[in-house]
Amino acid sequence: MENYHLNYSINTQPVPQKKKIRRNILFSQKIAPYIFVSPFIISFLVFFLYPSISTIIMSFQEVLPGETRFIGLQNYKKLLNPHFYAALRNTTIYTIWTLIILIPLPLVLAVILNSKVIPGRNFFRSAYFIPALTSTIVVGVIFRLIFGELESSPANMLMKALGLHAQQWTMHWGTGMFLMVFLASWKWLGVNILYFLSGLQNIPKELYESAEMDGAGVFTKFFRITLPLLKPVTIYVLTISIFGGFRMYEESFVFWQNQSPGDIGLTLVGYIYQEGFMNNDMGFGSAIGIVLLAIVLVINLIQLKFTGAFKKEG
């Protein structure tokens, strides 16, 4: 307390007017936070809010170089075409598949890897994580070779070893979807395992001990303790998986580079790219973007409503 007074008196010594103002800005606890957050505010206004408004406006326009005119809902009417349906369908089914695989599998693997009796747990954790380090585009090169069309490609050799037929993987809808989902699962499995592992470490051990005393078996404990207590992590993984699913583009690009046979690899983001950049139709591209935005917002809102995530974060 004494110290405080001492310093206080030093700080309030008369200072020339100009210098005082500068000092005040640097020292003011009122002004400093605004300076600190200003980069975000500027970035938000310029690179988020302005483009958002701009894309909404463009979605009602025909955007040609040098001349732009309003055409009402025509861009949205144009959405009713087979390419858009294919993009929407592919993106949605892809997202659902990644959810079906990338939530239960990592959860179970995390439970196994959390068990002290399993040898080499650190090795497995690291090995599963390494795919997440790679660029999908770059690693896709080797996936194309592994799933090559030739009878002698590794994937087709495996098919034959299993008594199945060799496939032309990138030529059909089903196998094409498999390729994209497989690539994504391969890449993100390890990351999701780590999320669940961190969730498991927060579950108090006493819970399991007292359950054991009550004679609970492995499965009872899993379904009655582990699963309910992992709910927050599961919701988080679900959220980022949906987010990742609907913005998917690279998994498709590595196999087809924007020109898949019969749109089997077309995604919503890919369709925005095709229409906006390749066909130079920014207005129509914006309309696709708005639909994607609406989907993402609705899913976010449903999640917030059902999980009450807002209450926790706020």
Partner: peptide
């Protein structure tokens, strides 16, 4: 929560 890809045309 909003993928940047949605805004890539105006950006």
């Amino acid at each position: 929560m909003i993928p940047m890809e949605i805004l890539m045309l105006p950006l």
